[in-house]
Computed example of a mutant assay.
Amino acid sequence: MRPDPSLADLPLRPELIGEEPYGAPQLAVDVQLNVNENPFAPSAEIAADMAATLTAAATAFNRYPDREAKRLRCALARYLGHGLDLDNVWAANGSNEVMTHILGAFAGPGRTLLAFTPTYSMYPEYARNTHTRYVTAPRHPDFTLDADLVLAAIAEHDADVVIITTPNNPTGTPTPLSVTEAVLQGTDAIVVIDEAYQEFSKHPENTALTLLPSYGNLIVSRTMSKAFALAGGRVGYLAAAPAIVDACRIVRLPYHLSSQTQLVAEVALRHADHLLGQVDQLRRTRDEMLVRLPQLGVEVIDSDANFCLFGPFADRHDVWQRLLDRGVLVRETGPQGWLRVSVGTPDETEAFYAALAEVLKEVR
């Protein structure tokens, strides 16, 4: 083989040929509203706490981290409440790694993962990378789900693992607890409720965590990237029956969560009240966005997340580019013709409104 091979020269797995790495554009623009990050940086107090904590621990960085992340898992259990403890919680490098642990334990060759479209674009990649068959069923036209639709799809595809994303990405649509419970009553498949945006919902207390005591096949997945403004920290976690946590422990790589990551996450959890106060502000901005976007002349899907899906456009890429030309980056994702915008700071959000108003005058 030549010394500078191309991908085509390498003996890739067949299913990887022609594939490209996942990634939303990371562009240096003034207003970045494309990946649902929390726009508020850690406060000076939180940043100082993180720095002091890491400095104090630095002399032990020659040692491996706690491979069970026990202190972090205990802190996450306290945050979640609902009677959860260490044995009910698992943590990993973002909800991405959480999902690969779930599929590594319960999916794989000869097994099937079911999701409901439109939904998070990484699910098929998790399936591909774990040699899992990936199938989908369409949501209702208003992007909602009901138990009959879900259970029919489970039966049709003989699904082993089912993902219900609520609030859904990219639409922001919630799935009622009554639907989740009816699905759990009707299947023995592993049911993953992906609550990455739950803290932003209009009623965050309506969480599938309340169903955990009754259903051993339920997994509730969350992340610290959004509500806790810790996207750079890479911490995701799940809550489930202890046996499911043990299954994830079997497939995780040793020392998968660095000491630094665990410590920074613990600091963020110590400041949960402040950080969730910022979530309240973002929720109010989201609710205002649901009103302002129709006033500008576009449709918007009712959202329980920290983003809104808006459109439709005859040429959404053209609208995306025109916004980018004005220094505003949104996401070209979801159903054809629609764009997704993350909730930003007040200044960022106003800049988005102004840019969109100009673009709409040009394209309509």
Rank of each mutant, 00 (worst) to 15 (best):
D66M: 09
L356I: 04
A47G: 05
P242W: 08
E348W: 08
L209E: 00
Q198L: 15
M1T: 13
E205G: 07
M1A: 13
V220E: 01
P176T: 01
R316P: 03
D49H: 13
L86G: 00
N93W: 11
E181I: 03
D194L: 13
R316K: 10
I193L: 11
Y120R: 11
V150F: 08
F40C: 09
A265D: 06
A52M: 11
L76H: 02
N96D: 13
S225K: 13
D194S: 15
V162A: 03
D287Q: 15
Q278W: 11
E362Q: 15
V300I: 06
S43Y: 01
F61R: 08
L103P: 03
Y126S: 02
D318H: 14
V29D: 01
M224Q: 07
A77K: 04
Q198E: 12
P14E: 14
F200H: 09
S95C: 11
G110F: 01
V179A: 07
L76V: 13
T210N: 05
E20C: 09
V179L: 03
P3Q: 11
C308K: 07
A227L: 04
T173V: 15
Y237P: 00
T136P: 00
E125K: 12
N169V: 12
C248N: 02
L257V: 09
S258Y: 05
P118I: 07
P25C: 00
L16F: 11
L230K: 01
T349K: 02
A56K: 12
K226Y: 03
P141E: 08
W320P: 00
S303D: 02
D325Q: 15
M99Q: 09
E288N: 15
L293N: 03
L12F: 08
L360S: 06
A137H: 11
P204C: 09
L184D: 04
K361V: 13
R234Y: 13
A268W: 04
R326D: 06
R128N: 00
D318A: 15
D318E: 15
S342C: 06
A354M: 05
R292G: 01
E195V: 09
L296E: 04
T144G: 08
A48F: 01
W90C: 08
F313G: 05
R331E: 12
S303L: 02
V291I: 14
P312I: 04
E205T: 05
I163T: 04
T187P: 05
G18I: 00
R133I: 07
A60V: 10
D66Y: 06
F307E: 03
T53F: 05
E362A: 15
L27I: 15
V31M: 00
I244D: 04
H317V: 12
V245K: 11
V183Y: 07
R286Y: 08
